[in-house]
């Protein structure tokens, strides 16, 4: 097992024999979570819109000795989401863990009145529509295990954002979805939680490029003094939430940001 895999699975192979699907797993937080789930023993479906990053992400997991397959999936399309879930079930025999991480570009930083009109609905679709589609398609399988649904939200989805107001809004929407799905699916034994990460990712790099003071301000308010690592810092949170260790946790948002946001 590689050093990174050891870091990503600090409790060992607690997900051995389980099957996970991770959307937006071609890079950033999604890739980190996919790698961590695989290192913990899960067979992982890397579901991304583009093979150009999805296939390499799956290959990297396989190269580390774990199990992964790439499936093309536009999470805003019901047919794609259903097909990806079907592929997971056919390949690996079921679905225990559904992670919806994919996110649409937020555009240039600025107030809501400055957001490009054509960049609003894609952000809504990738966050809320896709959360619905992933939930609906996976429930029939998750309730058989019973499994778990994890949505990736953001500290901005709690405290709001001056520069990314649409992003913050749709991320908050996902928190509402998590709380209500937890109530709806709890009697079925299916747990639903969210992770609100801050990590160094290509998206974060782009945000810093557009707003150079962002990283300095983020680190300055972070007690742990650094941005998170997608695989080593965020991935294990998903592993924990998917594991039996979290069997009594549902409806929660776990903020994994080094302590930067302490408003809950």
């Amino acid at each position: 097992m590689t050093e990174m895999a050891t870091v990503a699975a600090p409790w060992g192979r607690v997900l051995e024999g389980q099957v996970a699907m991770v959307t937006g797993a071609g890079q950033g937080v999604g890739a980190g979570i996919a790698a961590a789930l695989a290192a913990a023993g899960a067979a992982v479906v890397v579901a991304t819109r583009r093979a150009a990053n999805g296939e390499p992400a799956a290959e990297a997991i396989r190269a580390a000795g774990q199990t992964a397959v790439f499936v093309r999936c536009d999470v805003t399309e019901a047919v794609d989401v259903q097909a990806a879930v079907n592929e997971a079930v056919q390949r690996f025999g079921g679905l225990d863990i559904m992670v919806h991480n994919a996110v649409a570009p937020a555009g240039r930083p600025g107030g809501v009145q400055y957001t490009r009109s054509d960049m609003i609905r894609p952000q809504i679709a990738t966050a809320t529509t896709a959360s619905f589609l992933c939930a609906r398609a996976s429930l029939v399988h998750l309730r058989q295990r019973p499994g778990t649904l994890i949505l990736l939200t953001s500290p901005a989805g709690v405290e709001g954002s001056a520069n990314l107001p649409i992003y913050a809004t749709v991320k908050a929407t996902q928190r509402g979805i998590v709380k209500s799905l937890a109530r709806e699916w709890g009697p079925l034994g299916v747990r639903v939680n969210a992770i609100a990460p801050v990590a160094r990712t290509p998206a974060m790099d782009a945000a810093v490029a557009a707003n150079p003071s962002l990283e300095t301000r983020l680190v300055a308010r972070t007690p742990l003094g650094r941005l998170g690592d997608a695989t080593a810092d965020i991935g294990p949170v998903a592993v924990f939430l998917a594991s039996a260790g979290a069997r009594y946790i549902t409806g929660q948002t776990i903020v994994a940001d080094g302590g930067g946001f302490l408003g809950l």
Partner: peptide, 14 residues
């Protein structure tokens, strides 16, 4: 619930 939480944080962002 999703709509409500989104709107609540939209107000904060505004």
């Amino acid at each position: 619930a999703g709509l409500a939480e989104g709107l609540r944080v939209l107000a904060r962002s505004l």
